[in-house]
Design a binder for these strands. Sequence first.
DNA 1: GAGACTAATGACAGTCGCTGACAATTGACA
DNA 2: TGTCAATTGTCAGCGACTGTCATTAGTCTC
Lengths: 216, 216
Amino acid sequence: MTGLRERKKQRTRDALIRAAHELFVTQGYDATTVDQIAEAVDVSQRTFFRYFTNKEEVALSLHETINDRFYASLCARPVDEPPLQSLRRAVDEVWDESSRTITEILPVELHMQLCQVIETTPSLLSAHLHHYLLLEEKLVQEIARRTGLDDEQDPRPRVLVAAFAGVMRSAARHWGMRGDASLEEARRSTHAFLDELRPALASEWGRGTRVAERDE
Amino acid sequence: MTGLRERKKQRTRDALIRAAHELFVTQGYDATTVDQIAEAVDVSQRTFFRYFTNKEEVALSLHETINDRFYASLCARPVDEPPLQSLRRAVDEVWDESSRTITEILPVELHMQLCQVIETTPSLLSAHLHHYLLLEEKLVQEIARRTGLDDEQDPRPRVLVAAFAGVMRSAARHWGMRGDASLEEARRSTHAFLDELRPALASEWGRGTRVAERDE
DNA sequence: GAGACTAATGACAGTCGCTGACAATTGACA
DNA sequence: TGTCAATTGTCAGCGACTGTCATTAGTCTC
C-alpha cells in the first residue's frame, strides 16, 4: 500500500517540522535560517522549499492540521443544531483530540512554546492570521450550507463566524502571550472567552449581567 | 516653524506613497519592486527603506492613518456611553472624515483600488491583518479604561473588541472583494454588518429574528 | 554671509528568502 | 534487469532588506 517512497517523504517532512520547531524555539524565528533547518535534516535548501512553500509554513503546519480537523468536526455536527452551538461543540471535539494529533509529530511542550513564538514574531503572526482568515471563509461556507442561507444575501453567517473567530483568536493570543503554556490552560481560556461572547455584547456591563450563559 | 527640511521630507514621503499606489494598482503588488518605486520618485532604494520599514508599510500607510483617527475618535467619545455604541459611533465619525483624509494624499479612487489589491495579495493581506490586530489591542485598553475594568481580570473588553473587529474586517473584506469600490458602498456594508452582530448571535435564525436592532 | 554642525541621502557590499533550470539519483514496476 | 517517473542536489539569479561610510544639503552661530 504505502510505498517506501511515500514513507520516506513523510519522514523527511516530519523531520523538517521537528527541526524547525526546535530551532525556532531555541534561537527564535528570525534568527533561524532555512539553511540551518535543511542542514539539521541533511537535505538541500531546495528540498525544503519543495515541502514548504515558505519559511512560515513549516512553523504553522501543525496549526494547519488542527484547523483542518476543526473544519471537519464542524461539518460532522448535526445540521439542526444552532450555528454558534455547532462551532462551540466543534471546538470541544478538537481540543479533545488535539494533544494526540500533536504528539504524533513532536512533543507537546515544543508546540506550546512555538505558539508563544508565533504570537511574538510579527512576520509569523501575520501569516498565522492569514491562515486563520482562510479557515474563516471555509466556516462561512459551511454555516451557510447548514442553515440553507445564501451567504451573499444574508450577512449573518459571515457576521457570526467573524465574531466567533475573533473571540477564538483573542483567547489564543491572551493565552499565548502568557507564561503558563499548558494545553489545559489554553482550553480553559477559550471556553472562558466564548462564554463571554453574548454577555460582552450586552449594552450595559453591570456586574449583574456578568453571569455567563453557557451553550451546553 | 516647519523648516524646509521637514517639508521636503513630507513631500518625498507623500510622493513615495503615491508612486507606490499607482504601481501597485496598475502592475500588482508582487510585480512591483521597491527599486521601481524609488526610481519613480528619483531617490535611492536605501532612502525608501528609511521612510518605510518594509514594502508592505507603504501600501498600508493610509489605512494606518485612518486607524489612528478611529482610535482617537473612540477616545473622544463620552465615557458613560455603552462600549459597543462608542465603537460604532467612532466608526461613523471616521467614515465622515475619511474621504477628506485620503484626498490630502492621493485620489480616492486609487485608495479604493488599492483596497482590492490588499484583499487579493496574500503577503499584503497578512500584514494588513497584523496591523489590525495591533489596533485591536489599543481598543481593548481604551475600552477597559472607559469601563473601569481590568482587562486582565475581566475578559469582556477583549471579547467585545474581538467580535466587533472581526465583523468590521469581514465587512471590509466582503466589500473589498467586489467590483463596486465606492466609499458610500463601503460605509453601507460596514453598517449592515454591524447591525447584524447581535441578531447573528441569536440561537435561532428564524426569519423573525432577522430584524436588525440598530444602536442609535 | 562664511563656517561649523547635523540630518538626510547615495553608493556599495552582503545576507537571506525564494525560484527556475538541469542534471543526478533513487524508488516503482513491468 | 532495465525503463520510467518521482525526488533530490547544484547552481545561478532576483528581490527584499541591512550595515557602513562617504557625500550632500539644511540649519544655526558668530
